[in-house]
Every structure is written in C-alpha cells, then in structure tokens.
C-alpha cells in the first residue's frame, strides 16, 4: 500500500505552511526575525488590502457611498455594533484595537484562500500573540478598573456557599485556558481546512498512474471544491468568533459581575 502510493502520489499536506526567507527560499534561523519571509509578504499584502479598503475606498467621503466605501462602512458598523452590544458603551474606547484584530484576521484568512498564498493566521505563533495580547490586556484592564473586585469574576455569588470554592477553581482554570482555546481555535481551523484540501489535491492526479483514478480523481476535485466553499465560510466565521470572544472577554473585564 505504502509502496503503491510511493510510485506516483506525493503527500505533503504541511508543505504550504512552511516558512522560508522570501528572497533566498531557505528556512530561517531563530535569530533572523527581521528577514522578510513568505508570512511577511502575505501580512504586507493584507495591510495593503486593508489600506485599499479602509483608506483609499473612503477617500471620496460620499454621502451616498460607492461599492468599496459601502464595504468599508459595513465592516466598521459590524464591529462597532458588536463591541457596543457585547461589551457595552464603555467598551467602545477599545474599538480600534478590536477592529485592528478583526481586519487582520479576516484579510489573512481570505487572502490565504488564493491558491499558492500563505495564511499567517494558520500559525499558532501569530494567533497566540494576538490571544495573549487580548488576555493580558483584558486582565490588566480588569484589575485597573476594579482592583481586587475583579476577582469577583471567579466568585460565583449566585451559587450556594459550599459550592463557591469549587466553582472558583473551575472558573480560574477556565479563565487561564481562554488564550489557549482562543488562539488554537483560529490557527487550527485555518490549518486543518487547508491541509485537507492539500490531501485531496494529492489524490487528484491519480488518474495519471492508476485505473482507480477514473473514480478517485473526479471525486477529489469535487471534494476540493466543496472544501473550498466551506473554507470561505470558515474564513469569515473564525474571524468573527475571534472578535466576538475578544468582546466577551472585554465585557468580563469592564463588568465583572455575573
């Protein structure tokens, strides 16, 4: 079986996630943090696309917006409303940070769907920095705003007194797990979908080597199309989930009462 696969099919589902220097194509060492890589390129493309949408698209400041300006306003309104609805009016001060995160993730996710592109958000290093940023920022904010009262978040006053210490332990653990789930959810989703497409793509040329390919090749092409459609959904939903969770965490910091 393994030998049969070895004759023609090549499985490298992790190949597109590899990071290498943009100019030499070589892998980089840990101290070469300033070397532009493929992730640098696609982050830069993302920043450029965001600038095109949010800055160039709104240049005309039209009262009756054009297509690009409509999208920019839609994105603004979407996140602005989300922050206001979830975190409350006093959460709007942090709207620029949340909007930054949303735009970076949504553009990274969608640009990564271009065949041959690299997806920065499929890397745990990227999502973990963002999630840790949210976690540290929100925790610091909670203590700054409420001092020791912020610990009331872990003390479920609605529960019977005997249960409260146990619940407090659970609440503390769940609180510290937040950045882990927050970051792995995004990176895992982006990586898994792309890897599955890679696997199907590896099966696609089977028709060139084997008679079985008559059935397998069309099926895998269909599967790639279906996965791609799903990934378009996932690209937006994961950006949405990351953003709304950030809002929820912000709400906990601003209003720690249960």
């Amino acid at each position: 079986m393994a030998e049969e696969a070895g004759t023609g099919l090549v499985f490298h589902p992790m190949e597109p996630f590899k990071i290498h220097s943009l100019f030499s194509g070589e892998p980089i060492s840990w101290y070469e943090f300033f070397v532009p890589t493929n992730t640098t390129l696609w982050m830069a493309i993302g920043v450029l696309a965001i600038a095109l949408l949010m800055v160039v698209g709104t240049l005309r400041r039209a009262i009756v917006p054009g297509r690009v300006q409509s999208v920019a306003e839609l994105a603004y309104g979407f996140i602005h409303k989300m922050v206001e609805d979830v975190a409350g009016k006093d959460g709007l001060v942090y709207f620029p940070y949340i909007f930054t995160l949303f735009l970076f993730i949504v553009f990274s996710n969608f640009l990564g769907l271009i065949p041959g592109a690299f997806t920065p958000t499929s890397h745990i290093a990227v999502t973990a920095v963002m999630a840790m940023g949210v976690f540290v920022g929100v925790t610091a904010l909670g203590f700054m705003k409420h001092g020791s009262h912020f610990l009331g978040l872990f003390w479920v006053s609605a529960a019977p007194l005997a249960l409260r210490p146990i619940l407090a332990v659970i609440e503390v653990i769940s609180y510290f797990v937040r950045p882990v789930s927050h970051s792995i959810r995004l990176a895992g989703n982006m990586m898994a979908g792309h890897a599955v497409m890679e696997v199907f793509a590896a099966f696609a040329p089977l028709i060139l080597f084997s008679f079985v390919g008559v059935i397998v090749t069309p099926l895998s092409v269909l599967a790639i199309v279906a996965m791609y459609a799903l990934e378009i959904l996932v690209a937006f939903v994961q950006a949405y989930v990351f953003t709304i969770l950030t809002c929820v965490y912000l709400k906990d910091a601003l209003h720690p009462g249960h």
């Binding site: 990071i19 640098t40 940070y97 735009l103 963002m130």
Partner: peptide, 30 residues
C-alpha cells in the same frame, strides 16, 4: 511547521509590525 520554534521570533516581529501598521491606519485615517 507551526511547531517550528525557530520561525516564531520572525512571525511575531512581523505580526506586531503589521498590527501596528493597521492600527495606525485605522486610528489616524480610517
């Protein structure tokens, strides 16, 4: 490749730069 720690400093450096650029664009202009 996600667990290749030698790429972490690079990714984090460029991520912070990208987020900073987006934040600047948003707060100053957009």
């Amino acid at each position: 490749p996600q667990l290749d720690f030698s790429t972490f400093p690079n990714q984090i450096f460029w991520l912070l730069l990208a987020l900073g650029a987006i934040y600047w664009l948003l707060t100053n202009i957009a």
